[in-house]
Write a protein that binds this DNA or RNA. Structure first.
Lengths: 311, 311
DNA sequence: TTGAAAGCGCTAACAC
DNA sequence: GTGTTAGCGCTTTCAA
């Protein structure tokens, strides 16, 4: 058809506000949409279990609409990651849901995806790349700023904050570093808060036994920039240290327990279930409904205290 | 067909995990679903504007699926309410979205709806009735408890809280009364918090001019159990009274402004857009997808401070 | 490049 | 009560 006529048709379509009938279209199209879910194994990591719960909810909701998911879940090491990446690339998918757990390997994976021209949705943490993709997750820096604010609310005069970094990853791009940066920036930008002092400790490999009573000697509050707040709470509880306010991240069962007990004051939730659900929904909208979707969807930063914790 | 055969067919359906093809089904059914939106006029009340924004988003999302909305919006008085109620009942709708603004009139409306056997979704506040319906909204009592907690966090030793009731409704079932009940209950259940004293003032008709400087003489914090926190913030700002923490409800533009300025400390958000969206989605799921939906969906209680306010 | 026709899986109307 | 069939609006295929 000549371009001229295409334009004419489009004009008429627009004029009459014609909308394709989704039912007829998809019935005739008669296609299944198969998405790859390429994530860490969730049976070992509670955070990812929540993401997958959201994904499964979406799977159920969209199953009738021809959406099928195939899971490729790796152990939390780069070798397993690369293995599964190969698997994903071998098959032909209509869309890919993925999180950049290992930086270099992820870049590599994305570049290979680009060649196959498959829509990609990235969850949990973003990555700098020219490869076109949708991001659904938190704004880590801002969540650190929020943590700073929350600490500042419960203040007494002289106040010392301990930042406890408990981590096994050594990635320089890690989310928790952005959170800490945001945390400090809050106090820098509010210089009426100069009665705050900070101390940092770093503990490798989730080893609670590396915490010592000395660390908490002059401390009024603790900031744990990842999901391990329960380790600190547990330590303080065991050693009968009271009156220290803990702020942490993520609604893990253990964190929730200490929140209920009052040992943890605040948790910032990044809504992993919603992330997972939204990610699949985003692929569904792009492919099944052929709708335009936003490139970046930041999750709202949810403040959870004992009183608004959902069971 | 004999019951025996029905059972057989159902057994086979189950065995083969047969799922009706939604596309084919709705294409053949070839029906439009028309829902009535029966709410207060949103051009005068910002809270309802947000609800309607969510409704419109759902309208757009589901338009392709045969969903059509018809709006019946009333002025905030019972005469207008009754008028529009009559309108709604005259037409034939596949579903009704509604909020019980006026108690007696709402009961009446619900009873008449029941005769027509139309699915009803109620938003914002619930009502005790035997008429089958879905409720989507907040847990007002719990939100009051949460407000209590938040006040307790920012405490100094001797602390006096002023509860400012600014309202035009006199309904005994009003949401704000449940919030106040929840608020007090928080302090009753935490009797280590007995250094809190409370004072109440009631102001009719959103009249800011009825606030006086005396009211705030010995006050460290203010609880406004509805969306009028901005009136108090404005008064304090004009009179140069500083150091009083305000906690209120709802992300109205004015409230947000004072939150940004630091004049309001906390806002509890009941997510009106999400309520509106969810309400339409619920009708859609019941009718178009013929799915089972939950009878009650409480919105999460969202704590908003300056640092996690979304623009 | 264009036109005609089959058929996607289901519902509703109709005939038996 | 049961079986048959047209047709919903679109995509794809095949023929011209």
């Amino acid at each position: 058809m000549a371009q001229e006529n295409i334009d004419k048709v489009n004009a008429i379509i627009k004029e009459h506000d014609y909308k394709r009938n989704v039912f007829a279209s998809n019935l005739a199209f008669n296609k299944r949409f198969v998405f790859a879910v390429f994530l860490p194994k969730y049976d070992t990591i509670e955070y990812w279990r929540a993401q997958v719960q959201g994904i499964e909810k979406a799977e159920e909701e969209y199953r009738n609409f021809g959406v099928i998911l195939e899971y490729h879940l790796y152990d939390f090491d780069s070798i397993s990651f690369k293995e599964k990446a190969k698997e994903v690339l071998k098959s032909t998918y209509d869309g890919i849901l993925f999180t950049p757990t290992f930086h270099k390997e992820s870049i590599d994976f994305l570049n290979k995806c680009e060649l196959k021209n498959v829509p990609i949705v990235m969850v949990d943490s973003n990555i700098e790349t020219k490869v076109q993709h949708t991001y659904i997750g938190q704004d880590a820096f801002k969540s650190g700023v929020l943590a700073g604010k929350l600490i500042s609310l419960v203040v007494k005069e002289e106040h010392q904050v301990l930042i406890v970094k408990i981590t096994r990853e050594i990635e320089a791009t890690s989310v928790y570093l952005q959170r800490i940066a945001g945390f400090y920036s809050f106090f820098e930008n509010n210089n009426n808060l100069n009665h705050f002092k900070f101390k940092e400790v770093t503990i490798k490999d989730s080893g609670e036994e590396l915490l010592t009573i000395d660390m908490f000697a002059t401390i009024q509050s603790v900031f744990v920039p990842n999901s391990r707040a329960y380790l600190v709470a547990n330590f303080l509880e065991k050693n009968n240290i009271i009156g220290i306010r803990i702020i942490g991240y993520d609604l893990l069962d253990l964190n929730k327990e200490y929140l209920k007990k009052g040992m943890i004051e605040f948790l910032i939730n990044q809504k992993p279930e919603i992330q997972g659900f939204t990610a699949i929904a985003s692929l569904y909208k792009q492919l099944v409904l052929q709708e335009f979707v936003l490139e970046t969807q930041y999750m709202p930063l949810e403040i959870i205290v004992k009183e608004n914790l959902q069971m």
